[in-house]
Design a binder for these strands. Structure first.
Length: 425
RNA sequence: GGAGAGGUGGCCGAGCGGUUGAAGGCAGCGGUCUUGAAAACCGCCAGGGGUGCAAGCCCCUCGAGGGUUCGAAUCCCUCCCUCUCCGCCA
């Protein structure tokens, strides 16, 4: 959420951001609503002041007639206050949905446009030339018996799956390797709950309601299944005043992630690329405002080190405004080369790193105290993927397959997996 | 699931219905002392909001929401949450 007080002074910028993001919000209505809220607030403050003065006068000894008059006046004031409070609550309620609909500011370098209009920042690694006909990860699984979507569909539904055999080891090994990389970079590891209170989910600006919701809710409770450990890690410091000396805070979380994938039927839906549940190691950072841009780069650097270790060719892209989520000020995705994606191979999203500036912190009420300034400030929050297991498995299988149907395991992963290859069978 | 206890400032923890926005402690900040540091001692120090160039002034907040009262952190009701014990259980 933005600070409603800056709406007016940065109005044009916000309107432009909404347009770039293809978000339809009435910024002027929000400005007007906020004005009404402050007007009533001011009026209420004055009335409360009168009431307080009146009450102070009631402490004296009063004769019965005076007391009676005093009491009557007190009742009158009380009613007026109640009336104003009611109006204030109503105006606040009107402002709230408008504020929630307004996305974060936009980084000046974020490209305009939609999903296809990203800026490519760099490419690392050469897509491999195969001297045989490579298979996609589903076909490889057919040979190697690594996952079972039929059983997943039977037991849980479309896009649910079982990993089997070496794929299970791969899932565990990738997590373990990722944890080593993030710890090396100073991100303290956590396992997190796979559910969170709606209040926390809301605070991170994931909307669990509405038909396009990506979030599963647990009926009869106020809990949602998390879509990413960003939610639980961010929740840790909700409603907290941190010391400047504690920043930056680097955390990482191992969790399962659940996504309804509402509205994405048929979209890149082959196999493990888009599923309802997956395991992920996530980085989450809390910084001072002036440090968030550097932290963003730091997170991307960790992501790159991991992909380099896995010998997956990739490119880093700066996501266009129209493809950013509401909380993201700027987002860098890393797309890994997937030989069987599209027609003759293509890059597909493997990780994603966002700088959410103070957008999440404002709703979460995560602030910090500077050593020398009395005014407390909201922190900046950032998140990035260390490993999203299924997609990484896709990239490893497809990139490192061999003509005999086996898969070579990258050297850096071998000790974690305990294998130099999978198959052939 | 059953029984009980409790939710107060960055943290811990007091708090007869008006003098408590809140004792005390810790942490933090400033100072005295010290070659320096520690210790000791002295002082300052809740958060949010409105208004103002500013100093300041004002309002709100003791889990949330209602109620009683001229007046509630203190009394009543509802809800939420946390903890302890018992049961069940990986």
């Amino acid at each position: 959420m933005l600070d409603p007080r800056i709406l007016e002074s940065r109005r044009d910028e916000i309107v432009a951001s909404c347009k770039s993001r293809r978000v339809d919000v009435d910024v002027d209505a929000a400005i007007a609503a906020h004005q009404r809220v402050t007007e009533i607030q001011t009026e209420l403050n004055g009335l409360n002041q009168r009431r307080n003065e009146h009450q102070a006068g009631g402490k004296r000894k009063l004769d019965p007639a005076e007391r009676e008059a005093h009491v009557a006046e007190g009742r009158q004031l009380k009613e007026e206050v109640a009336e104003l409070e009611k109006r204030l609550a109503a105006e606040r309620a009107a402002l709230q949905p408008l504020m929630l609909a307004i996305p974060n500011f936009l980084h000046p370098d974020s490209p305009q446009g939609g999903e296809a209009d990203f800026n490519e920042l760099r490419r690392v690694g050469e897509p491999r030339k195969f001297d045989f006909q490579p298979l996609d990860h589903m076909a490889l699984s057919g040979k190697l018996d690594l996952f079972d979507f039929e059983a997943g569909a039977k037991v849980s539904g479309q896009k649910w799956y079982f990993l089997k055999n070496e794929a299970v080891l791969l899932e565990l090994a990738l997590q373990r390797m990722a944890i080593d990389f993030v710890m090396e970079a100073g991100f303290a590891p956590f396992t997190t709950p796979d559910v969170a209170r709606k209040e926390i989910v809301d605070g991170l600006a994931f909307s669990p309601r509405g038909s396009e919701s990506q979030i599963y809710s647990i009926e009869g409770t106020d809990l949602d299944l998390i879509g990413t450990a960003e939610i639980t890690l961010g929740g840790i410091n909700a409603d907290t005043l941190l010391d400047e000396a504690d920043l930056p805070l680097r955390m990482s979380g191992v969790s399962h992630c659940f996504r309804t994938e509402a509205g994405s039927a048929g979209r890149e839906s082959k196999g493990l690329y888009r599923v309802h549940q997956f395991t992920k190691v996530e980085m989450f950072a809390i910084t001072r405002p002036e440090d968030s841009a550097a932290m963003h780069d730091e997170i991307v650097a960790v992501e790159e080190r991991i992909l380099q270790a896995l010998e997956i060719p990739y490119r880093v892209i700066d996501i266009a405004a129209g493809d950013l989520g509401a909380p993201a000020y700027r987002k860098f995705d890393i797309e890994g080369w997937m030989p069987m994606r599209g027609d003759g191979g293509d890059y597909g999203e493997l990780t994603s790193a966002s700088n959410c500036t103070d957008y999440q912190a404002r709703r979460l009420k995560t602030r910090f105290r500077r050593a020398d300034v009395k005014k407390n400030e909201f922190v900046h929050t950032l998140n990035g993927t260390a490993i999203a297991v299924p997609r990484t498995i896709v990239a490893i299988l497809e990139n490192h397959q061999r003509s005999d149907g086996s898969v070579a395991i990258p050297a850096a992963l071998q000790s974690y997996l305990g294998l130099e290859r999978i198959g052939p069978r």
